[in-house]
């Protein structure tokens, strides 16, 4: 492919800026530890009867934390170009809104048509 060398300005610095600063193996291990702890908490919350009344928000918060850790560190959104965060969180918002409205419109209103 050497003959295909188009005239171009090599921009190694700028390439590096976009792709570097990945976390180290130690950081990954720390994140894995936190993820494990959060999962243990989730399962713990599920089995503790006293917490049943706040089960839903607690689980949602714990899983949001896990979600954030995986996305930010394992998928290195934390370190990458912000554009990737946008590419992920914009559809995610939409997905969440669709989820909320569908459950409401079908699960709820279908049984009780309006006040």
């Amino acid at each position: 492919m050497s003959e295909s060398a188009v005239e171009h300005v090599t921009a190694p610095a700028h390439h590096a800026a976009a792709e570097s600063h990945h976390p180290t193996a130690v950081q990954y291990l720390v994140v894995a530890g936190i993820l494990t702890v959060l999962t243990v908490c989730e399962i713990g919350v599920y089995y503790i009867p006293a917490l049943q009344s706040v089960l839903v928000p607690l689980l949602l918060i714990l899983s949001a934390g896990k979600f954030y850790l995986v996305a930010a560190y394992y998928m290195h959104l934390h370190f990458d170009s912000r554009i990737f965060s946008g590419l992920f969180f914009f559809p995610l918002t939409l997905a969440a809104l669709i989820l909320i409205s569908l459950t409401l419109l079908l699960g709820f209103l279908a049984h009780h048509p309006g006040p």
């Binding site: 171009h8 921009a11 554009i83 590419l87 992920f88 559809p91 939409l94 669709i98």
Partner: peptide, 29 residues
């Protein structure tokens, strides 16, 4: 195919990575 694709791109990002993230976005829905 084109070893200079990243250097020539507007944002200095690899198109395949941008594509992967867009695909992931679509999958969330």
């Amino acid at each position: 195919e084109n070893p200079h694709a990243v250097a020539e791109s507007f944002l200095g990002l690899d198109s395949r990575k941008v594509g992967m993230w867009s695909f992931i976005g679509s999958e969330t829905v």
